[in-house]
Design a protein around this nucleic acid. Structure first.
Length: 604
RNA sequence: GCCCUCAUAGCUCAGUGGUAGAGCACUUCCAUGGUAAGGAAGGGGUCAUCGGUUCAAAUCCGAUUGAGGGCUCCA
């Protein structure tokens, strides 16, 4: 997506440049390590990689030499020449290249496609640039391990990632965006702003500090509020269940490895990895009528998933988290309206933070369960609701879960990275597994459909995405401290507390910095903490019952009566105004999701 | 779980065989200063943990734990 937004070229050209840059890197690697075994080297989103089997581990310290050799090849402007070889010839040529041999065996045609570029002869479907000078705007980025063919039972190769662009300006911009992403990394901001931390006594779990927890609670309250407005009821179930619950839901058989289990008096109990099964118990806790549908049940349950140690990372991949989860029990006739409501909620939520999003609908897979007519009707309901909402969407045919079709939402942050957050999944199976029923108008027992939905997904992860999107600058309604009163000298401390009192009574989170420091020092610290409102009070302000207002966003705003500032902040909170500057970058960086797997399949 | 890298004060980091340093933060004192850091003094580290090599280890080697970048996974 980034590619199409760059000014001067089309995606196809960038694809060629990156694919060719990968080849040039392979040529340079062969110069450095003549015994290197080459695997594959495809272009990916924003760059390229090549997988190698090398005699020793390579590190970023080797990049200088490697980039130097690449630059030499590029300066020589070697042409990329395409040839078609009979398989036999290719087998002979690549006899010392086991990975290439394996690839050749996988090709069905009688001939294989070969590209020559300077010293490198590579098995490759192409396409490439005319000659190597087109790849001059490149940079190597990182090394990583990667399994051959992505299979954990196959050998671990060394992957070198790089980026390449058609102009120096684009390369520079991209590298700058990477820097920016690093600068606003939620782990860094979380530490700097004292929002949250981690501790090795509980790897993969977030330790919320007062400031972060305050902001987090505002976010959670927002979800509570919109859910209450839309007729949801909230429950709170245990975290800890006998394994039979997950036996019944079907989770145990597929996801046992990801669940924390323990022995309790000879019985096996598990920490719940999701809220669905226990919400089913709630539905079944009494006799239900069609009059209750759609029944919307929210639960902010604490979920635990036993992620592999190597898979943990910051707040985005944790072992313990909370989802803004809800389950809606309804009839198939109610799907259309319900989806419409959800789309509005999702739109409103992302709008709060100035985030864009893309939508994908996934339809019936081959191994589906349930009645075809039910699937067809449900999918139609989803599509109609999307059209009604006027939102463009793409369809992933056959990509739905076996239990029902789904809509996924990809949020785009201000650096152009995309994150899978909201999801709406229809489920025809869980109600059957739990033998859910309600009494219809005709006094017959019927089975409801369940919608699983989340808007933020994991609140922890969504919070982290927000921190990076906003660069740690929360809108006033979410800010841990919304206003800091700064008395100029100790003389004004009493007045400062009076001002703070006025704010507190209006529900504003306010603090007084009454340390005997110079006001410049206090302002500096308030700015560093990104506190939206700074209220300086000196002798003049005390006399007049005013404050000298300074905001994080606008700087000095002059003298304003206390009540006026109070009302302004109250307004921002009530409306949840986005009073921060969110600069949207045109260029994307590497977000999650698109690791180039699909491209790797296209052109080796 | 697998590959690579990393771990020194609360934070950011210097210190590559000879008994541990800086800046910020913290404490105390001076200064009461009008919009992004006033000055001085002081406290604080079994150099992640365990083991090995060595006369001597923060420094070299191994293991463990945790973190980072990827791979696999992500209901």
């Amino acid at each position: 997506m980034a590619d199409t937004q760059s000014q001067s070229n089309n995606p196809d050209e960038l694809y060629r440049i990156r694919h060719s840059a990968a080849h040039i890197m392979a040529a340079a690697i062969l110069e450095m390590f003549p015994d290197a075994k080459l695997a594959i080297g495809p272009p990916i989103k924003d760059g390229f990689y090549y997988d190698f089997d090398l005699p020793r581990p390579i590190s970023t310290d080797d990049f200088g030499q490697l980039e130097g050799r690449m630059t030499q090849l590029i300066k020589q402007d070697v042409p990329f020449e395409h040839e078609e070889w009979p398989k036999a010839k290719a087998r002979e040529f690549f006899k010392d290249q086991p990975y290439k041999l394996e690839l050749i065996e996988g090709i069905e045609d009688e001939t294989v496609s070969i590209y020559k570029s300077g010293p490198l002869v590579d098995l490759c479907a192409g396409p490439h640039v005319e000659s190597s000078s087109a790849c001059e705007n490149f940079k190597l980025l990182k090394v990583a391990g990667a399994y051959w063919r992505g299979d954990e039972n196959k050998p671990m190769l060394q992957r070198i990632y790089g980026t390449a662009w058609s102009t120096k300006k684009e390369l520079k911009h991209y590298l700058h965006t990477l820097e920016e992403a690093k600068r606003r990394d939620h782990r860094k901001m979380g530490k700097q702003l004292e929002l949250f931390g981690f501790h090795e006594m509980s790897p993969g779990s977030i330790f919320w500090k007062p400031r972060g927890w305050t902001a987090y609670r505002q976010l959670k309250n927002y979800f509570r509020e919109i859910e209450a407005e839309q007729g949801y009821e909230e429950i709170c179930n245990p975290s800890f269940y006998h394994e039979d619950l997950f036996e019944q839901s079907g989770h145990l058989e597929h996801y046992k490895d990801s669940m924390f289990t323990m022995d309790v008096h000879g019985q096996t109990y598990c920490l719940k990895p999701m809220n669905c099964p226990d919400t089913m118990l709630y539905f079944k806790s009494k006799k239900r009528s069609y009059r209750e549908l759609p029944l919307r049940v929210a639960e902010f349950g604490h979920l635990h998933r036993n992620e592999l140690p190597g898979a943990l990372g910051g707040a985005t991949r944790v072992r313990q988290f909370v989802q803004d989860d809800a389950h809606i029990f309804l009839t198939k006739e109610q799907i259309f309206d319900e989806i419409g409501m959800l789309l509005e909620m999702i739109d409103a939520t992302y709008g709060l933070f100035g985030m864009e999003y893309e939508v994908e609908i996934s339809t019936r897979p081959d191994d589906f369960m349930g009645a075809v007519e039910l699937w067809d009707e449900a999918e139609e309901g989803l599509k109609e609701a999307m059209k009604e909402a006027g939102k463009p969407f793409t369809i992933n045919e056959g990509d739905g879960a076996f239990y029902g079709p789904k809509i996924d939402f990809q949020v785009l942050d201000c650096l152009g990275r995309s994150w899978q957050c909201a999801t709406i999944q229809l489920d025809f199976q869980l109600p059957l597994r739990f033998e859910l029923g309600y009494t219809g108008a005709d006094n017959e027992e019927k089975t409801p459909i369940v919608i699983h939905r989340a808007i933020a997904g994991s609140l922890e992860r969504f919070f982290a995405i927000l921190v990076e999107h906003l660069a740690g600058v929360f809108p006033t309604w979410m800010a841990p401290v919304q206003a800091m009163v700064v008395p100029i000298t100790d003389e004004q401390n009493d007045y400062a507390w009076d001002v703070a009192d006025t704010f507190k009574k209006a529900g504003i989170r306010v603090e007084v910095d009454q340390r005997s420091e110079k006001m410049g020092y206090k302002i500096h610290e308030a700015e560093t903490r990104k506190i939206p409102y700074m209220l300086v009070v000196g002798g003049r302000e005390e006399e007049a019952g005013t404050v000298a207002l300074r905001t994080y966003r606008e700087g000095r705003r002059g003298t304003v009566p206390v009540e006026e500032v109070r009302d302004e902040i109250v307004d921002l909170i009530k409306n949840r105004t986005l009073d921060v500057d969110v600069e949207i970058s045109a260029l994307a960086t590497q977000g999650e999701g698109d690791t180039g797997k699909d491209m790797a399949e296209r052109g080796y």
